[in-house]
Amino acid sequence: MPIEQDEIEKIAALARIRVDTAQAAALGQRLTEILGMVEQLQAVDTAGVEPMAHPLDAVATLRADEVTECNRRDAFQAIAPAVEDGLYLVPKVIE
């Protein structure tokens, strides 16, 4: 199904791009080729194929979940302008 000139102009307007009339014919041909490739992909029977999470079946190596720093909350809150019950107090910004 070839893409017509007016369809290219509509798509260009929606995408907010400028397409010269000289480029429109070549662009229409290229878009028609791309849509043809998509139709070929959709025609493939994938009924018995299990979906993959990653094409290379890669496994992420995870680090051990260990605490690596000490608790310095009291030191940080000692220099804060306003703290109450372990929470930082900030000025109200929404009325």
Rank of each mutant, 00 (worst) to 15 (best):
P55L: 01
L62S: 06
A24N: 11
L14R: 11
E95Q: 06
V93A: 06
A12G: 04
A12W: 10
I17W: 00
A80T: 07
I8N: 03
A75D: 00
E4V: 15
L31R: 08
D45L: 02
P55S: 00
Q42C: 08
T21C: 06
Q23I: 07
A80E: 05
L35D: 09
V59G: 08
V90K: 01
P2V: 11
L14S: 06
A24S: 12
A58S: 13
Q42K: 15
A24E: 11
I17K: 00
I17G: 00
L27D: 01
L31I: 11
I11D: 07
E66L: 14
A75Y: 00
P81Q: 06
R16Q: 13
E69N: 05
G86M: 02
T68D: 04
D74L: 00
A82S: 02
E50D: 15
E84I: 09
A13M: 03
C70H: 04
A82P: 00
E66D: 04
A80R: 03
A22V: 06
G36R: 13
Q42W: 09
C70I: 08
P51D: 13
Y88Q: 01
Q40R: 12
D45A: 01
R16I: 08
D57I: 01
M1H: 12
T68H: 10
D20G: 12
P91T: 10
V67A: 10
E39H: 08
N71P: 03
H54D: 14
A53W: 15
Q77H: 01
I3R: 12
I8R: 01
G48T: 03
V90L: 03
E66T: 13
T46S: 06
Q77D: 00
R72G: 05
M52K: 14
T68K: 06
V67S: 10
D65W: 15
A64P: 13
V49A: 05
D45K: 00
D85E: 03
R72L: 02
E7Q: 14
T32K: 04
P81A: 05
